[in-house]
Nucleic acid binder design. Sequence first.
DNA 1: AGTTTGAAGTTTACAATATAAACATCTGCT
DNA 2: AGCAGATGTTTATATTGTAAACTTCAAACT
Lengths: 205, 205
Amino acid sequence: MAIVKAAYHHGDLRTALIEAALEIIDEFGPQGLTIRKVAHRAGVSHAAPYRHFPDKDDLILAVVERGFELLDEEMDRARSAAGDDPLAQFAASGEAYLSFAMGYPAYYRVMFSGDLLASKGNEALRHTSAASFVRMIDDLRMAQDMGIVRQGDPTLQAISIVSTVHGFVSLANDNRLNHLYGNSYTPEQVKDFVITAIFEGLGVN
Amino acid sequence: MAIVKAAYHHGDLRTALIEAALEIIDEFGPQGLTIRKVAHRAGVSHAAPYRHFPDKDDLILAVVERGFELLDEEMDRARSAAGDDPLAQFAASGEAYLSFAMGYPAYYRVMFSGDLLASKGNEALRHTSAASFVRMIDDLRMAQDMGIVRQGDPTLQAISIVSTVHGFVSLANDNRLNHLYGNSYTPEQVKDFVITAIFEGLGVN
DNA sequence: AGTTTGAAGTTTACAATATAAACATCTGCT
DNA sequence: AGCAGATGTTTATATTGTAAACTTCAAACT
């Protein structure tokens, strides 16, 4: 929880609204997110949110931004706990990413799918996901310098990896994969296979 | 266009509604899809669609189903035009997939993101995407038998590839990638890099 | 041919929601 | 103490999904 400046009536309604929105998304899915429900859960009238967000899209954007903060925190925590090896840090933060994405599927969807945004779309989201990715590129560059990862532009490598990971969790969260492998594997095994393929792609044995 | 049985008043309103929905999604994005707009474009009253679809979700599901039909057609066409080599067929149909996904971003999003569906979600969509994927697995198996693709369960290979491709087009369509590579590369170059990485992963040189 | 009937379409009505506008209240500054 | 502006509330409106009652017309049966 971040430290917030005390506010007038409610305390800090803006934060409370974002918090409430998170819960509602988790409970009812992205479609269940209504301004009125958010306001009610925060204990204010249905018009109160408009004092803090111009419209629903802006509330969602704040929620998304908060989501990337949380994701970044988790990835940083995992990285810190992983020791000095940049590849181990890379792996640990990647695992944190997967765990976040699959632990809060509805939230993850909101963060990445522009679907909920009516007016403002991609433009508004463009920047939010940069931080984690940039750090990953750094990891790769360092691992390359240490000779444990195949040479090549780490930015392109990172894009490829991010595509695989994002695609995998998106499809997995939507149950688009399980019918492909039936009962031959557990979801865990499939996940491990994909992760292994990523490391193979980097030339790590 | 499939042959359809003639209907009462309109001719074939069901198909016309799906067609109209496609256009609206393309013009206004997924959020712009309203029953009333669809009905108006098809030239009927706003309640007429309810004679053909129990609710909005079912209209969307029909649109999604139609989308996978179209996608399958394009992939089949590309595969047929690609000669006998299963790997070439695989590559051609993959290219068709990418071209579809990036040519109709809003439509692609509706097909894969459950976001638009309020009540019925993933369960309803689970089956729609099977056909193309199964054919891809066959391609891989044949290419393995011919010794041009690394051994291993082709289902798992396919899942990994599908994850990468789906993740890439999703991120690219949402402008989530371009700020990562700035002006160092063209989008085309990045796409080619990702495709190359996929083939490298299969052990194809 | 005339009648019936059910599918297809229309009109009307209603509830939920986003959002605007006018009004009320509280807090910090003077 | 009093003011001003930020924060909330109430009331109102337009959009939308959807239900219900009514209409119309093609086709089957007599």
